[in-house]
Write a protein that binds this DNA or RNA. Structure first.
Length: 279
DNA sequence: ATAGGCGCCTGCTGGC
DNA sequence: TGCCAGCAGGCGCCTA
């Protein structure tokens, strides 16, 4: 589900709600997530004081003062929200962290269970976990040198390239389509075929699209809600994603859908020609 | 090493 | 109205 803007919104929402809180009890419910919960993790987290909440790509990191790290990925349908203890548990709630002082609790709920929760005893172990996955750079203030060279080295199409978190983190199916539409690049163009001006246009577009989506608190198609339970608003701004057969906002031609990298890809055949435009 | 295909899950929608 | 195939925001494993 959630891509960088949604994850960023969850983090921003949770920040004030989790500030100065301590984790009381940890409850594990329902079926396992992508990976099963290790019972030792419960002990590692209980009585720990939260220090910082941030994200790396689409991963949410809750760091404890002791150095223990709780790492959450929302998968396709994950929701990480604070509720009052009195509020009824929604179906498919997997994890409940009581917070003290106060009557609130942090709940993780993931209908499809593609999400995950992991605990690391130290910052170093968390970094090793990320290193194994070879996460690429954040999309903001990308080094131009890095971007041009990694595009040039890749024989994949742009859609697959953008979805690969080793090249750039945080971009998923929606924002890949939106960024390609904004840069007027066909999703099946090969990464290595981009001229430098096209490559720069693409990275600028990614940044602009993601920033605009963050401003709108992300996009809600079905399940996504922020850390305080609110839906996103950027779904109303889509220019390509999900607009199959509807007129392109730039030129009026109808938006096409094809499958690339196993995912549906929406683009305007007129604005995003397969051949590079001359310049 | 790299890239492509598919499996993992559940719920909703659209077409018959 | 009812059924069911197809599809959905992501990752990770396997294979070639």
């Amino acid at each position: 589900m959630p891509e960088l803007p949604e994850v960023e919104t969850v983090v921003r929402d949770l920040k004030p709600l989790l500030a100065q809180k301590k984790i009381g009890s940890v409850k594990i419910l329902g079926k396992k997530l992508r990976r099963p919960w290790n019972p030792l993790w419960t002990k590692s987290l209980e009585k720990q004081t939260l220090n910082k909440i941030h994200r790396r790509g689409k991963w949410i990191i809750l760091s404890m003062k002791s150095g223990v790290q709780l790492l959450i990925h929302l998968g396709m349908t994950g929701q990480l929200c604070v509720f009052d203890q009195q509020e009824a548990l929604k179906s498919h709630t997997n994890l409940v962290f009581k917070l003290s002082p106060g009557n609130a609790e942090l709940r993780f709920r993931d209908v499809r269970r593609f999400g995950s929760a992991d605990v690391f005893d130290t910052e170093k172990e968390l970094q090793d976990f990320f290193a194994k996955r070879k996460l690429g750079p954040e999309p903001f203030n990308l080094s131009q040198e890095y971007w041009l060279s990694s595009l040039a080295k890749s024989s994949r199409n742009l859609k697959a390239f953008l979805l690969d978190q080793q090249n750039i983190v945080g971009v998923g199916n929606i924002y890949a389509d939106e960024s390609l539409h904004k840069s007027r690049l066909h999703p099946s163009r090969l990464a290595c075929s981009l001229k430098p001006y096209e490559a720069i246009l693409l990275s600028n577009s990614i940044e602009e699209i993601l920033n605009a989506a963050i401003k709108n608190r992300g996009s809600t198609i079905r399940n996504y809600v922020g850390g305080a339970g609110l839906m996103g608003g950027y779904q109303d701004e889509f220019k390509a994603y999900g607009r199959t057969g509807l007129p392109c906002m730039n030129c009026g031609n109808s938006i096409q859908k094809i499958v690339l990298a196993g995912r549906s890809s929406h683009f305007c055949p007129n604005c995003q020609p397969k051949k590079p435009s001359k310049r």
